[in-house]
Design a binder for these strands. Structure first.
Length: 876
DNA sequence: CCTGTCTGCCC
DNA sequence: ATTCTGC
DNA sequence: GCAGAATGGGCAGACAGG
């Protein structure tokens, strides 16, 4: 085993020898035979051996439990090289798409899969219809033709039954591109069958009348009951068709409520309602104490259900008017708009109003609320109002699906208007493509829906187009587990690597003064000054212009002669003007966000541009990345500390990518973005594939990056699909000096459902009344876990970064009196890797080691500053 | 006016 | 942000 | 591979309440 020092180095950060480590990921790179590997492999597989012969390795090399890249966990190590070798012919998953080595095993896997679920599935549909119908009966009690009800209910299942096998086969192979038509056929079938019942799940309201909110909730309930996406889509689309047929003017609020939004993101409308206020409102509406509500929430894991359950306890003096979609939307908007003194009470009374009017058909009839164990609570209006407020409808239906359903609904509706038959699958697909494309260029239903109603869906592209003033959806990237995966995915294609800067995504829009009249839409959203119109939008289309007045003021300095308008895709990064270097993300976040005056900006920012989406009156999103980048470099000029081009290199040589990844990290970046340069997939079209780019970060690579072994001290009750198990856990590092456990982070991702169950079982016996006196943890009430445990379980956890935390205590004493001011260390993006059953809690990562890791990270950042300029314009 | 809590939004 | 899961 | 739903740290801003 290598000695202590080298290990720690490797662990602690982004140090030179980590290159070696990365090398391992390519397999057979020469360092696979590094000694530490074998040792640890041994250590894991056979504890005894380690105890006797390997006592040293464990205690000396891993006194603190810190993982180094060398001291990698055995499985990763031991199988490392073989894994890589195997990759070409084994089932290494996903990365095979473009290679033709794989199809055979892949198919086989699928075939095997499809054969087993089929028999299981068959019985289930028979069971489900009777389960569903009672819920329906409740809501539809006014005028329900029961026969129709169950019929429409059954159809989806019937469809499954009749040709279950056929369909299953289709579904299973859905992923294969070449089977897409079959999927469409299936979808058609589902929808057609649903439709064939002749009735919508909710009976028609009077044409022109406002859409009843109950109608939407009925659809929601149907959607919630299935996980089949085609069925979800069909329900959604059918309901939208009904709205189109009866009350098209309510389509906009209907869609908005479906996607859990009150308005387009860039409009900046916030509800200002969170869990606390919702609980207060539910308590007041139902006459139950806050404590009871909280207990319920813990048990039920869904405030919507809590509201539904306690609904109807209060006798209503008179029957309120039934809620309408429009009414709910307006009510919520009202809640969003109140502000200032006493606004919280007003918000609560707004919620109370909605909740008291909810479920007027069923409430107040002496029923004690609904049975929430049935059908996930059924179509309760209260439930969905509350879920809207929480910002999570949890239907298995969200923006993307609604968009597609909307396209289908419109095409069908348009066809029906002209007495044409149901549109062909091809036409459906065409409509979807059109709507997706339009939406990604102009993500605003306020704009799209009226235009669509007026001009028809196929004319949308002429009416709703990308233009400065309205943010478009940004391209996103997929994480990549190794550089070989990158090579596999982009095999045979030219691609480029860019530094991934650790800042805030910024889409910068600009129109020069002389051209303002050409962009009428822009005047509404862009900030106007003597230098023209401009705005900055965030990754989620929020308007950040108020946060970056300094950037907008200087933007004319970046452009060359003749630039009239543009939309740039960039990253803003905090900038150290003295040392001329990039500062960490945490620094950037301390910037003021509102009413920022240029004079008193404390955190300066440098903009790193990496794409050009609109230029001089023309969208350039369909051009290849190579062309866009060339245009970008031709027409803009870097300004030190203000505006730079993202560092990049075009290479497909593994070693060079590896080197570049190392360099990016040394330059305080997060890693690399990898993008195709020329193919049709190199266009900037999120509608086609929103995650068309790849990102490579050190901590994605198995066995590379910082990982720690931490002790589980507490847990939080899970919600939604994690109800009845713990949803998150409180972790700590160990301080041998005073024998304390100092909290370092919560963790809630990385667990499979099985592991969550297992942990729940393992931890429940360890529950204790109160935290041990030797637990160092925040005393803020909101920071307390729901349950505390004996210190026993040790988990390996991976992290991207270490941060100084106002909440966690790990190594806090080490930072007393420093800049940190007594703050502890915490983890950025913590995720569970695996259980370390082989470790006792006092063998967990020590707080000293944590402090060391943090310092090392800082040191690397500083070192980068020194080197800057030398390899600044290094050619790759 | 100060402090703690809640919310929304960055990652 | 990261990760898991059903389709 | 997509889409959705679980979950993380941590900041500024808005309010409530003393």
């Amino acid at each position: 085993m290598s000695e202590d020092k080298s290990r720690k180095q490797a662990t602690l950060g982004y140090v030179p020898d980590s290159q070696l480590t990365i090398g391992r990921f390519f397999g057979g790179n020469g360092n696979a035979q590094q000694s530490p590997k074998k040792q640890t492999t041994l250590a894991f597989g056979a504890k005894r051996q380690r105890a006797s012969s390997g006592a040293d390795p464990e205690s000396a090399a891993e006194p603190s439990g810190v993982k180094s890249e060398n001291d990698d966990t055995p499985d990763a190590n031991g199988t490392e090289s073989s894994k890589n070798l195997k990759r070409e012919n084994a089932d290494e998953v996903e990365e095979s798409d473009e290679s033709d080595v794989q199809p055979v095993p892949k198919r086989r896997r699928k075939a095997a899969k499809s054969s087993s679920p089929t028999p299981q599935k068959t019985p289930s549909p028979k069971k489900s219809p009777p389960k569903k119908s009672p819920a329906k009966a409740k809501v539809q009690s006014p005028s329900p033709p029961p026969a129709v009800k169950s019929e429409s209910e059954d159809v989806s299942d019937e469809a499954k039954n009749q040709d279950g096998e056929e369909e299953d086969a289709d579904m299973v192979s859905e992923a294969e591109e070449d089977v897409k038509p079959a999927v469409k056929k299936t979808m058609e079938k589902v929808q057609a069958t649903l439709k064939a019942s002749g009735k919508d799940p909710y009976p028609d309201w009077k044409a022109g009348d406002p859409v009843p909110y109950a109608a939407m909730c009925t659809t929601f309930s149907l959607i919630e009951m299935t996980s089949k996406r085609l069925v979800i889509m069909a329900h959604c689309s059918l309901f939208l068709q009904q709205v189109l047929r009866l009350t098209p003017k309510d389509l906009l609020p209907t869609v908005q409520l479906m996607i859990n939004k009150l308005a387009a993101d860039y409009a900046g409308i916030e509800l200002g309602i969170g869990e606390s206020l919702i609980m207060k409102a539910i308590g007041e509406t139902t006459g139950r104490s806050l404590g009871v509500i909280k207990t319920d929430q813990h048990e039920i894991g869904d405030l919507g259900l809590v509201a539904a359950k306690s609904r109807g306890n209060q006798p209503t003096m008179f029957k309120p008017k039934p809620l309408t979609v429009r009414g709910v939307h307006e009510g919520l908007l009202g809640i969003a708009q109140v502000q200032g003194h006493g606004s919280q009470d007003k918000k609560i009374s707004g919620i109370k109003k909605l909740l008291s009017a909810a479920d007027s058909a069923t409430a107040g009839k002496g029923s004690k609320g609904i049975d929430i164990t049935k059908d996930k609570g059924g179509p309760s209006e209260a439930k969905f109002i509350v879920r809207f407020l929480e910002g999570k409808l949890r239907l298995g239906l969200a923006e993307k699906t609604v968009l597609v359903a909307l396209a289908q609904a419109i095409v069908s509706h348009e066809a029906a208007l002209e007495d044409k038959p149901t549109p062909s699958p091809e036409r459906m697909a065409e409509a979807e493509a059109v709507l997706k494309s339009v939406y990604s260029q102009l993500p605003s239903y306020e704009e799209i829906i009226p235009a669509m109603l007026e001009h028809g869906i196929f004319n949308l592209p002429d009416v709703c187009r990308l233009s400065p003033g309205i943010p478009l959806k940004p391209m996103l990237a997929n994480p990549t587990k190794s550089i070989t995966e990158v090579l596999d995915r982009f095999e045979g294609k030219e691609f480029t690597c860019e530094y991934k800067y650790d800042g805030e995504r910024a889409q910068i829009h600009f129109v020069a003064p002389d051209s303002i009249r050409k962009y009428p839409a822009a005047t509404a959203t862009l900030q106007k000054d003597k230098k023209g119109l401009s705005a900055i939008f965030s990754r989620n289309s929020e308007n950040l212009s108020k946060k970056y007045p300094d950037v907008l003021a200087k933007l004319d300095g970046w452009i060359k002669e003749g630039v009239d308008s543009f939309v740039l895709d960039c990253e803003t990064v905090a900038w150290d003007t003295v040392n001329k270097k990039v500062l960490p993300f945490q620094q950037l976040m301390t910037r003021k966000r509102k009413d920022v005056k240029e004079e008193d900006i404390k955190v300066k920012v440098c903009v790193f541009a990496f794409d050009l989406l609109f230029f001089n009156g023309e969208p350039v999103v369909k051009k290849s990345l190579r062309e866009r980048r060339q245009l970008l470099h031709e027409c803009f000029q870097p300004v030190e500390g203000e505006f730079q081009f993202a560092q990049f290199g075009n290479t497909n040589v593994l070693d060079e990518i590896q080197t570049m990844l190392e360099d990016s990290v040394k330059a305080s970046c997060e890693g690399l973005m990898v993008k195709m340069l020329d193919t049709d997939q190199s266009g900037y079209e999120p509608s086609k594939r929103s995650r068309n780019w790849l990102k490579v970060k050190k901590d994605y690579l198995a066995g590379v990056g910082d990982s720690l072994d931490l002790v589980v001290l507490g847990a939080y009750y899970g919600r939604g699909k994690r109800t009845s198990v713990y949803g998150a856990f409180l972790l700590a590092a160990y301080s041998p000096n005073n024998d304390t456990y100092e909290t370092i982070c919560n963790i809630g991702t990385g667990f499979s459902e099985a592991v969550l169950e297992e942990m729940h079982k393992a931890l429940t016996p360890l529950i204790i009344d109160r935290p041990k006196p030797f637990y160092a943890h925040s005393s803020v009430p909101k920071d307390q876990p729901d349950v505390w445990f004996e210190p026993r379980l040790v988990w390996e956890v991976k992290t991207a970064d270490l941060t100084l935390s106002p909440r966690y205590k790990a190594a806090a004493d080490e930072f007393e009196g420093t800049t940190g001011g007594g703050k502890g260390v915490s983890l950025r993006f913590p995720r569970y890797i695996k259980s370390r059953d082989d470790k006792n809690p006092d063998q967990a990562t020590t707080t000293r080691a944590v402090a060391e890791m943090y310092r090392k990270q800082e040191a690397v950042a500083k070192e980068a500053a020194g080197k800057r300029g030398v390899d600044d314009d290094f050619e790759y």
